[in-house]
Design a protein around this nucleic acid. Structure first.
Lengths: 204, 204
DNA sequence: ATATAGTTTAACCAAATGGTTAACAAAAAT
DNA sequence: ATTTTTGTTAACCATTTGGTTAAACTATAT
């Protein structure tokens, strides 16, 4: 129970819920835990957020709806390939540094019910379309600026190297003995390291 | 409810539990769901596996205890750097192809309670030690065979590219419109693609 | 045939958990 | 000063859920 009188109850609830939902998952999270963590009575949760589902959506769905379309726009922009890679990495790391719980939550929800999650975040039509990015890679291969390979691997590698360290953060920090600050610093380094790593690899 | 009379009850329970635990997580999994999925009565679960915890451990902890030390040995072996990278990728993909639930489960458990999970899998002493691998990278940098960079990034990149596609499988298959077979095939490609991608990038 | 051990089920129980209620306190409006 | 609205709590309720029990069914040995 962490009392922080300076913040209002609503804010404290949100921050507590974020913490509990993130570590325990939607199913594992207990309303009582969230109340304790926020230093308030359980009934007050229902006063501010009608029920567990609403509280959950208020935290994550809203943020996911804001964030994902941004990423999608990067992939669909007309920027050159190498620049696009840089933009993606930067935008993603920006978000993860401020919102470290998001990636884990997203993975969790996608895994639980892919269709429902996709629908909630993207709506019926506005689905993520990696096609343009893949075509762009193929074009660069034909132009002879990069090596020949299945474009899907490049996309997977880009996503993996950017997202995974945040998803696997507890494992990373534990096994590499990293403090929060050190982890943060390394992720900052990756803004340049990942594009460099990729471009060094594929450039002819 | 999927009845498969050919298998014995115990086997059906294990396979059902694997499926339910994987998609719902330990907390989200319902004993009733598992029973339904296995096409048997709930009480029979407790007949074969005393309780939920035991059932859970019987599936995953046992497999994790078998798998992780194997990976650890690769990192600590005396093989040359590039060969070690190949070995890791191959061993990991071997495992994931046969055991697609494992990576998600592991991430989930680590996230829930890092210390307890680490203890259960590795015991008190035998912790994973990436130090040797990192030192090996530094040595190669000094030898001038590979470029200069923070070795942690190479380790992160290797882990990310190998593990993430399996962790994020539902997202990958959905957004890239991949069938199970296609996914499997792409993962097979990655046995060669990942080491190639890395070596192309870091070799001087 | 009958006893025995192993397997499976329906019905039940206790604890945990999400959610409600009614009363109380503090702040704002009158 | 008094009423009204907003914020907060303890006690309670209904449902879900993990787990138990006792009975029934099946196969195998005697």
């Amino acid at each position: 129970m962490v009392k922080k009188k300076d913040q209002g109850a609503e804010e404290r609830i949100l921050s507590a819920a974020r913490k509990v939902f993130t570590t325990k998952g939607m199913a594992g999270a207990r309303m009582q835990d969230i109340a304790d963590e926020a230093g308030i009575n359980k009934a007050l949760l229902h006063y501010y957020f009608r029920d567990k589902e609403k509280l959950f959506e208020n935290i994550f769905i809203v943020e996911a709806q804001r964030f994902f379309p941004k990423i999608n726009m990067i992939f669909q922009s007309d920027a050159p390939l190498f620049e696009k890679i840089e933009n993606f990495v930067n935008e993603y790391i920006d978000e993860m540094q401020e919102n470290p719980y998001l990636p884990w939550f997203v993975m969790n929800e996608i895994n639980r019910d892919p269709d429902q999650f996709m629908y909630k975040v993207w709506g019926k039509n506005n689905l993520p379309k990696p096609a343009k990015f893949l075509e762009q890679i193929e074009k660069e291969i034909k132009n002879g600026t990069i090596k020949r390979f299945n474009p899907v691997h490049l996309l997977m590698n880009l996503l993996s190297m950017t997202i995974f360290p945040f998803v696997a953060r507890p494992m990373m920090t534990r096994n590499l003995h990293l403090s929060d600050l050190q982890f943060r610093k390394i992720m900052e380094e990756r803004r340049k390291e990942i594009p460099k790593f990729i471009i060094d690899s594929i450039r002819k």
